[in-house]
């Protein structure tokens, strides 16, 4: 029985860790498949989390008692609103990357690096100037102890409907929508063509610039959303950092070899590693091994490098990713 409870605990906290990774990695997947690399995800996540958390701070009930008394529905609505607003902030922020790398044909890695530098600087600067401290603290706990009657279903209830926030369901929906969009719609297939061979796609009348803009802004929206979901699941305050989750999401994408359901698996695996790194001492057989927590934290990155080496011949990476598209070079 204790073992069971432990497994459920590990599982739910793995889900919690993996969801922001999944959402951001799906955004990165759409972006890269259109042929634009986006290593600005870290910065965009920070910006989305910053705006989203600030919104929550303003919109939530202003006393602790009232905040604690919110029903699951209230919490979920607040969460979704926060995520959407964080997403919109991320979208607007990623416009800078789209403008620089698509319209101005600047180097994609450089403009992304600039965004990664801008976001924490602005978040901390504005927070300190306006709120007076670098922390944005709010009072709502988004985690729902039980999701209505669904929590009573044996096993499944314990796995998916206890101790979760609504972000989990959003993540799954986003993954499915992205899959359908990419592989089952005309626009999605065109988008992938842009990433594989933009010149060929252009010659068939696809507007490369438009599609790439759309893809970068979508990834910005999802990254902003993921940033908020990260901040909302970690604690009740945002401190101007997303602890490298934006970069980890890129690793997830690579580990998942640019395929939606492998990305889901990769996100789960990385989430599990993060969870184990925190709570390995409560897992009997891992506690007996007594491996340093930092080695668990290292595994996702090492695994990604190993996968990159192993798949260097059979990589599904979009062929034109990272290359500037210029009609004139056709």
């Amino acid at each position: 029985m204790i073992m069971n409870a432990l497994v459920y605990d590990l599982f739910t906290s793995t889900l919690e860790t993996m969801i922001p990774l999944l959402i951001v990695a799906v955004g990165a997947m759409i972006c890269e498949k259109s042929g634009v690399t986006n290593i600005a995800l870290e910065g965009i996540m920070i910006f989305g989390a910053f705006v989203g958390c600030w919104f929550v701070k303003i919109a939530e009930p202003q006393t602790l008692v009232l905040a604690a008394a919110q029903s699951n529905l209230d919490k979920s609505i607040l969460f979704i609103e926060g995520a959407l607003i964080g997403g919109i902030a991320g979208l607007l922020f990623s416009w800078l990357h789209a403008y620089a790398s698509i319209s101005m044909k600047a180097d994609q890695t450089i403009s992304a690096t600039a965004l990664n530098l801008v976001a924490p600087a602005i978040a901390i600067f504005v927070a300190r100037s306006v709120i007076g401290g670098r922390h944005i603290e709010y009072k709502t706990t988004f985690k729902m102890a039980e999701v209505g009657a669904l929590a009573d279903i044996p096993v499944i209830g314990d796995l998916f409907f206890k101790n979760v926030n609504v972000g989990f369901y959003m993540g799954i929906v986003i993954l499915l929508v992205a899959f359908v969009f990419l592989y089952k719609t005309k626009t999605g297939l065109r988008l992938m063509a842009c990433g594989e061979n933009p010149h060929a796609a252009d010659s068939l009348g696809v507007n490369i610039y438009k599609i790439r803009y759309g893809a970068v802004l979508t990834s910005g929206f999802l990254a902003g959303m993921g940033g908020f979901i990260f901040a909302a699941s970690v604690g009740k305050s945002f401190e101007g950092t997303v602890s490298g989750f934006g970069f980890l999401a890129i690793a997830v994408l690579i580990f998942g070899n640019w395929r939606p359901f492998r990305v889901l698996f990769a996100a789960f695996f990385f989430g599990l590693m993060k969870t184990i790194a925190i709570s390995y001492s409560s897992i009997p057989f891992l506690a007996a091994l007594n491996i340093n927590t930092n080695l668990y934290k290292m595994i996702p990155y090492v695994a990604t490098l190993v996968v990159l080496v192993a798949t260097s011949k059979s990589s599904r990476a979009p062929k034109a990713a990272g290359k500037i598209y210029d009609q004139g070079t056709r």
Partner: peptide, 18 residues
């Protein structure tokens, strides 16, 4: 706030990319 210096440098980098 002293973080303004970071804002300025990051804006400089964005502009130099542009």
């Amino acid at each position: 706030m002293k973080e303004l210096a970071d804002v300025i440098t990051s804006v400089i980098i964005y502009f130099s990319a542009l």
